[in-house]
Each structure stands twice: as structure tokens, then as C-alpha cells.
Amino acid sequence: MTRNDTFYDTLPRVGSFAALAKPDVYTPLPNDWTIGAADIVGSTDQIAKGRYKTVNMVGAAVISSQINASGGKTFPYVFGGDGATFACDTEMAALSARALGVMKRWASEEFGLDLRVAQVPVADIRAAGRDVRVARFRASDSVDYGMFSGGGISWAESEMKRGRFALSAAPAGAIPDLTGLSCRWNNAKSRNGSILSVVIEPELPGPRDAFAAVASQVIALADTLERGGHPLPPDGPGVSWPPPGLDLDAHVSRGAGSLRKRKIQLLFGNLIAWLFFKSGVKAGAFDPAHYARMVSNNADFRKFDDGLKMTLDCDPDTIATIRSLLERAERDGILRFGLFEQAEAMMTCFVPSVTQDNHIHLVDGASGGYAQAAARLKSVSR
């Protein structure tokens, strides 16, 4: 392996989320790496039809399919609610492209969704005057998430939406490897007023330090909330039976098999899991109480992907303060923003093993949070 192939493994894991507002925390990606991107066309319309869980699941499936295709290699990725963005080295690029093509085909055939997919060379991003820099945020001792800065991720997504760098769908009937992907937990109701979805993007070109200062202020306001505004209870959002995401889980995990048969299998399997969580009884190396705590610890409820995205359990006064701060910064030409309030948060999970702590939990507002907030951002963009 070259150093570029092991680049991400060598990055330090940053323990303070507030530190990630500072541009100097990030390291430039190697020039021969590639950005992969995917998003659902018309996601806001799909959410308006009540398909927000499906939109989230397909967005998370992009990440799951890439993790499974990578053969255990670590790489940075960001969940955006209705899609995902990630970076991969030269060794992984071909496998990554195939996995994206399969996802495009599967999203269409399984759910009738048009999933845009693209690969954008980092070298092309830099030639366009943007950069891609990355950091690793340590959510817990067992899980970290990639964070991006430099404007290159936003540029790549914009170019994808213009039809550039597009990848074709795989042949009919292609099925992604989504082993470990599920959405079996209950939604988490707000305990403080509202689940606030926050999307903030810097105005470019613009002073990086000014955006960093405002992002730091928003994070500081979030830190005044209980548990920093974490939208999930400390012991996880709880489970019920039958699980609320049963139908989606069956679509995701059935492969080429019968949907009805898979639902029956899942009903039985989830009944057993529900009994363990309700009773607290351990089963070998599986400790349900510990697992539920790690669900909350590992959640990705805040992230940087050129801008700042957060899913916060927020009281009305703090929401008003955040809004006022962002409106002032927008008038000053520092940023653009979108906020969206809803009653609950939801998450989609990727679980390699229930006996290890490296399971990841991708959080969004339960009424289409990030996509809805981003739509409001677009409506006021200059």
C-alpha cells in the first residue's frame, strides 16, 4: 500500500466537536483521491408524501453499501439525510463506483426513487478553485466520523446535480450488499420543545475565519442544552414490537428473496431482540443495556461537511437565539442557513456485530429534517 492508501488511517481522532470549527484542524486529501456522492432527486417532494423514512434509509444505504464494498477499509463519509458523500483512495475507487451504480439501480427498482450518483476527482475540485480537507471526529472510543471542509464537497454535489461526473446504473436486478443496515429503533421525541434540524453553509468566496467564528457560537449555544442538545436519550430511543421500520428493513435485507417471507423472519428476530431489551437479560457477549447506551454515544447528530449540520433537541428560547445569530451572519454575507423544527428525531443504523461497540447510528429529524432545512436554505440563497 502507498501512503495515500493509508492516509485516513493515520489521521488523529479529534475528541472535541467545537475544535472542528477551526480550519487548521483539517488535513488536505491526497490529490489522487475521489469524492463519491449520491442524493435523491425530488427528495423534498418524497418527504411531503410521507416517505421520509424511505428517503433516510436510501441515503444511509449509500454509506452501508460502501462500507461493505470496502472490505473493512476506513474512509470518511457524511450522511446528509437524503443522500451521502464520502472520499475514497485509488485502490477503492473502482469498487466504489460499482457500488454506487448498484445503489442507483436498486433505489429505482425497490422504491421507485431516482438516485443521482457521481464520482468527482479531488484534482478536478482543486482545479476549480476549491479544496477538500478532512478530519476524524471521535464520537466514542469505538466510532469516529469523517468531517470535511474547504468547499470541495459542496462543489462536487452541485456539479453532480448539474449532470457532471454522473455514473450509470448497474444492470437490471442488481442488489447492493446492505448487510448490517436497519432502522428498528423507535423515534426519539423531543424532551425540550422541538427537534431542530440546522443546515449552515459558508458564503463562498468568503472569509473562513468569520464562518468559523459563527459556527463556534452555534456550537456553544448547543452546548448549553442538556447533553449538548443530543436528540437521543442516554439509553437510546427504545424499541417496540413489532418494530416501526419492519417494512423498510424487509426491503433492505431481502436480497432477491420474498418480501413477505423476509417480514416474517424479521418479526420473529425482532421479537427476540425486544424481549432482551425489555428484560435486560444478557445473552453471551451481548449486553442489551450496554448496547443501548452505545447507540446514543455513537450517534452522528452533528457534523461538518463544508458547512455545519446538527440535529438538536432544543427549547424555544435557544431556537430563537440561534435563528437571530444566523440571520445576522447571513445579512453580513458570511453564510446561508436553513432551520426546520419537528417533534421527533429518527435514526438509521449500521451494525457489523451486536457484540462489539463499533455500530454507527445516522440521525436526522423524523419529518425530513436535513432535507427540509436545506430546502429552506435554497429558497433564500442569492
Results as ranks from 00 to 15, higher is better:
residue 223 D to H: 13
residue 230 H to R: 14
residue 235 D to V: 10
residue 245 G to I: 08
residue 236 G to N: 05
residue 289 A to N: 12
residue 325 L to I: 01
residue 274 W to K: 09
residue 298 N to M: 03
residue 264 I to G: 06
residue 269 G to A: 14
residue 249 D to E: 15
residue 247 D to E: 14
residue 237 P to E: 00
residue 225 L to Q: 13
residue 283 A to P: 01
residue 258 S to E: 08
residue 292 A to H: 02
residue 226 E to P: 10
residue 226 E to G: 02
residue 275 L to E: 00
residue 309 K to H: 11
residue 220 A to G: 09
residue 296 S to Q: 06
residue 267 L to W: 08
residue 269 G to W: 03
residue 234 P to K: 09
residue 308 L to R: 10
residue 273 A to S: 13
residue 251 H to I: 04
residue 265 Q to W: 05
residue 333 G to W: 11
residue 286 F to H: 11
residue 220 A to C: 04
residue 317 D to H: 12
residue 303 K to Q: 13
residue 245 G to V: 07
residue 219 I to G: 02
residue 317 D to W: 07
residue 237 P to M: 05
residue 264 I to Q: 08
residue 249 D to P: 06
residue 254 R to S: 01
residue 237 P to A: 15
residue 218 V to E: 00
residue 253 S to P: 00
residue 300 D to W: 09
residue 254 R to A: 00
residue 237 P to H: 05
residue 311 T to K: 10
residue 270 N to H: 14
residue 333 G to F: 11
residue 310 M to N: 06
residue 235 D to H: 14
residue 281 V to A: 12
residue 331 R to C: 06
residue 238 G to S: 09
residue 263 K to F: 04
residue 311 T to P: 00
residue 306 D to S: 13
residue 253 S to W: 01
residue 279 S to E: 04
residue 299 A to M: 05
residue 313 D to Q: 02
residue 244 P to Y: 10
residue 252 V to R: 07
residue 274 W to A: 12
residue 266 L to P: 01
residue 257 G to W: 06
residue 334 I to W: 08
residue 280 G to N: 00
residue 252 V to W: 04
residue 289 A to F: 09
residue 238 G to V: 02
residue 234 P to D: 10
residue 269 G to K: 13
residue 231 P to A: 00
residue 249 D to S: 12
residue 267 L to I: 13
residue 301 F to N: 11
residue 339 L to Q: 05
residue 275 L to Y: 03
residue 286 F to D: 05
residue 277 F to M: 12
residue 230 H to G: 03
residue 267 L to F: 03
residue 299 A to V: 07
residue 334 I to S: 05
residue 297 N to C: 11
residue 274 W to C: 02
residue 288 P to S: 12
residue 278 K to A: 13
residue 260 R to A: 15
residue 255 G to S: 07
residue 285 A to L: 11
residue 304 F to T: 04
residue 287 D to K: 08
residue 228 G to T: 07
residue 281 V to L: 13
residue 256 A to N: 10
residue 288 P to D: 06
residue 323 R to K: 15
residue 257 G to F: 08
residue 275 L to I: 15
residue 221 L to R: 10
residue 330 E to Q: 15
residue 302 R to T: 02
residue 239 V to L: 14
residue 244 P to I: 02
residue 265 Q to M: 09
residue 259 L to I: 11
residue 310 M to W: 08
residue 328 R to W: 01
residue 248 L to S: 00
residue 260 R to M: 12
residue 221 L to F: 03
